[in-house]
Design a protein around this nucleic acid. Sequence first.
DNA 1: TATCTTCTAAAACACTTGTTGCATTTTTCG
DNA 2: CGAAAAATGCAACAAGTGTTTTAGAAGATA
Lengths: 293, 293
Amino acid sequence: MQKGPLHGHIIERFDDMSIQLQQAARHILEHPQEVALVSMRELSRNAGVQPSTMTRLAKFLGFSGYEDFRGQHADVIRVGADGFAARALQRDGGGTDGEGLAQRMLQSLSAQVARLCEPDSLLRLSTVADRLGKARRIYVLGLRSCHSVAWHFHYVMTLLGEKTVHLDGPAGTSGDALIRATADDVLLAISISPYSLHTLELAEAAREKGVEIVTITDSEVSPLVTIAEHVVLFSTESQTFFHTLVPALAVSEVLCGLLASHDRTGALEELKRADRHLSSMNTYATSIPRRKI
Amino acid sequence: MQKGPLHGHIIERFDDMSIQLQQAARHILEHPQEVALVSMRELSRNAGVQPSTMTRLAKFLGFSGYEDFRGQHADVIRVGADGFAARALQRDGGGTDGEGLAQRMLQSLSAQVARLCEPDSLLRLSTVADRLGKARRIYVLGLRSCHSVAWHFHYVMTLLGEKTVHLDGPAGTSGDALIRATADDVLLAISISPYSLHTLELAEAAREKGVEIVTITDSEVSPLVTIAEHVVLFSTESQTFFHTLVPALAVSEVLCGLLASHDRTGALEELKRADRHLSSMNTYATSIPRRKI
DNA sequence: TATCTTCTAAAACACTTGTTGCATTTTTCG
DNA sequence: CGAAAAATGCAACAAGTGTTTTAGAAGATA
């Protein structure tokens, strides 16, 4: 039984309460969850107290009213679900309104990434990594907002070899690379709600060619789930009007990491080759350019 | 996140639901606890659905009404609290070596995003957001691995208007858009070590035209810092051979959020326009395609 | 005991809740 | 295309919510 800071607060002030208030408080100490789960009137009935007593108790404890009191209890339940989000609750709220939003966004993103550590997620991740590792070739498909994730996955994988093909040609040729896809290949499809129609069409087409589908998507009821062999889920919730792709990118990177760790020596070999090539192409600034002006 | 038998039940019947029912169900799948913790009307508001739809969903799932439905969810929370011994088990849980790496990666990523909440970071973020907000136009530059971040920033911003120009033309035309850049504009340059030479060259060229540089980069000694007016830093440390871009993407999203919040009503207006256009173009799958095979 | 203060019970209040019937829109199918 | 059916939004409803006010009961003080 979890007992938030409220628990201690109630005990502290217990001795100063009137008999009725104590009776109400005692019942709440024994059934903290019920505060959030049932109505005040029902709670007061169960506690053998008048409804008004509950309001008085809430105010006695320093809340603006019973609804505030219940809100706190609800929060305890919410964060109790995954202890990581507990940190998100400890917002000190300082700073300008802009900084407040930024802080809320970042804390929520951090928590969402942490939530991917659940056993179920981890299992799915390693399953998918295994499947991708066994594939002859990996076709990577992610349109619109998911382009960033798809491309990043592809980019990292190109450093490790040439297993991946990015389905994102210009001039509407996105899907053409699938021409030579076979049953030995896998399509990694990435999409979030609202689901791009083109992604679904291409995935369906690939499936009909016998290509196995693996998907990174945002919900159990994503249309991709119905046609995919393996699924990894992530959350897209954000404090803003648009969906976040930070957890999705994290998933993508983890998959890259797992794939690389399957064949550590081979990966290192390929990396060296990429390094040599890129430096011979003068791609990177090897030293910080002195200011000439 | 605990997901009772209700979870499976909803998924099972999901395909038979109408669109509105699906939207409600989707929200509940993602926030099962909220069903018990907030009122139906508030839940429906958060799900973007009419209150009646919730009642209908409950009945569709075989409950006598919404209150029954909520009761079930409350029960899940009640028993979940006691059976938290199970959660302790999943903490260090053995798992395969692959899962170990995944877990380490995710926890580290989560921590790195959380570290962006430091006051210094928050201040830089809001400063940069202000500067970007005042610019006539924002040129966005991110090559190679940073392409994903640059593109995602640009993509989100296109939903809000046409302030941004993505410097990423095909066939080596990346920088051409800078032709019409003036001192009223800002270049948002994103780069990590090893720094792409082309990025530095373009940034330098822009600066000579009087364009102010704002950069999202990985170090105080990044070459971009020397020519940039404002800087936001993030970490790229990862448990793998490649650098992570998850914190960078988080920074980008926060900037988008801040920019949108500067002009909330204008942003909403633009969003509606984008919505109308995209749906008229039939871009998204409005319903899950029934399996025809 | 008389008086004052504190506490409790009950009722009235304004408001929100979950629900339902109806008109309208959208989809389906002949 | 047009009729039938399904799905949706809207508004009204009764019931229940948390709160406040009131009057009276209980207890303390002198």
